[in-house]
C-alpha cells in the first residue's frame, strides 16, 4: 500500500456496499486511491472537486466479496460490512485502505491496531454493533392491528437490517414493522419473508384498549421497580441518554 499513488479525484458511488466494493476493485487494479469517496446522495457539489462517478458492477463486487473471505479472513468481511453501516463520513476511504492493505498482509491485518485506518474500521464496526445491541433492548413494539406490531427508532447508524434479523429469530410468528425515522427506512416482516423499503408514509391508527392496558402496566412497573433510597439520575442517563427517550413507552 506504501507505493500506491494518490490521485486528486473525488469518487461518487450509489451508496450500496456493492458500489463500494466496485471502487475497491478498480483501485486495487490500478494501485491508486482517490482523495475522497462519497455516496451520491450525501454529496454536495464543490467546485474544487474533480468528480468521477463509479458505476456499480456486480461482477467486480462479488469477486472482491469472495476475495476478502478467501484471501484475508471472514472477520475482515465482517469488519468492513459493519463499518460500512456506520454513520461516519470518512468510512469509505478507511474501508478501502483497510481492504487493500488486507490483501497484502493477510489475516494479521486485524492485529495492526496502531495503523490509524485499521483502528478506525474496527472502531466503526464496534460502534455500529454496540448501537445495534442497545436497540435490541430499547426498541418498543406497539400492537397496531391484530398481531401486527410497529416500532419507530432514531438510530445514528444504519442498523435496521441486523436489528430486523434479531427480531425475526426471536419472534418468528409475529408480523412487524421497524421504522428507522432518521433515514426513513422500513423493515417489514410477514412471518416468512422480510423486505427493506425506503421513502414510506406510515400512519399509526389509534391504539386499542388492550394495547393501552399493557402500556400502562409497563409504565407502572418501570416506576415501581426503582429503589427510592438509591435514586441516581446520572447513572440512569449514562446508560440511557436522552436521545433514546422519544421512542420509549416509559417516561424515565
Amino acid at each position: 500500500m506504501s507505493n500506491w499513488k494518490l490521485i486528486n479525484k473525488t469518487f461518487l458511488y450509489d451508496g450500496t456496499f456493492d458500489g463500494l466494493l466496485t471502487i475497491v476493485f478498480d483501485c486495487y487494479c490500478k494501485k491508486t486511491f482517490p482523495q475522497k469517496i462519497y455516496a451520491e446522495s450525501n454529496y454536495t457539489n464543490n467546485f474544487l472537486d474533480d468528480i468521477f462517478i463509479i458505476k456499480t458492477d456486480y461482477d467486480k463486487s462479488e469477486r472482491i466479496f469472495n476475495g476478502i473471505e478467501k484471501n484475508i479472513c471472514a472477520k475482515a468481511l465482517y469488519n468492513s460490512y459493519y463499518a460500512f453501516l456506520s454513520d461516519d463520513n470518512e468510512k469509505e476511504i478507511n474501508i478501502l485502505k483497510y481492504i487493500c492493505t488486507g490483501f497484502d498482509q493477510g489475516p494479521k491485518i486485524n492485529n495492526m491496531l496502531t495503523i490509524s485506518y485499521v483502528y478506525k474500521v474496527i472502531n466503526m464496526r464496534k460502534q455500529t454493533l454496540s448501537e445495534c445491541h442497545k436497540f435490541k433492548g430499547l426498541l418498543r413494539f406497539q400492537e397496531i392491528q391484530n398481531n401486527l406490531y410497529y416500532a419507530s427508532i432514531h438510530p445514528d447508524h444504519n442498523i435496521i437490517e441486523p436489528l430486523g434479523h434479531h427480531f425475526i429469530k426471536r419472534l418468528p410468528m409475529q408480523n412487524f414493522i421497524i421504522h428507522d425515522k432518521t433515514r426513513n427506512l422500513c423493515f417489514l416482516y410477514n412471518k416468512n419473508e422480510y423486505k427493506i423499503i425506503d421513502d414510506i408514509n406510515i400512519e399509526i391508527p389509534d391504539i386499542s384498549e388492550n394495547e393501552q392496558k399493557y402500556q400502562e402496566l409497563w409504565k407502572m412497573f418501570f416506576k415501581t421497580i426503582a429503589i427510592k433510597e438509591r435514586t441516581n439520575p446520572r447513572c440512569q442517563m449514562q446508560f440511557m441518554p436522552k436521545k433514546y427517550w422519544k421512542d420509549l413507552i416509559e417516561e424515565p
Binding site: R170, L171, I227, T231, L248, P252
Partner: peptide
C-alpha cells in the same frame, strides 16, 4: 427458538431499560 415459538436467549444478555436508580431492567 424451537417450533416457531416465542423468544430466544441471548448469551451476552440484553438490557431493556434503566430505572431511576440506574439499575438495568432486563427481566420482569
Amino acid at each position: 427458538n424451537i417450533n416457531n415459538g416465542i423468544g430466544n436467549g441471548d448469551v451476552s444478555g440484553i438490557c431493556h431499560s434503566w430505572g431511576a436508580d440506574g439499575r438495568c431492567i432486563s427481566l420482569l
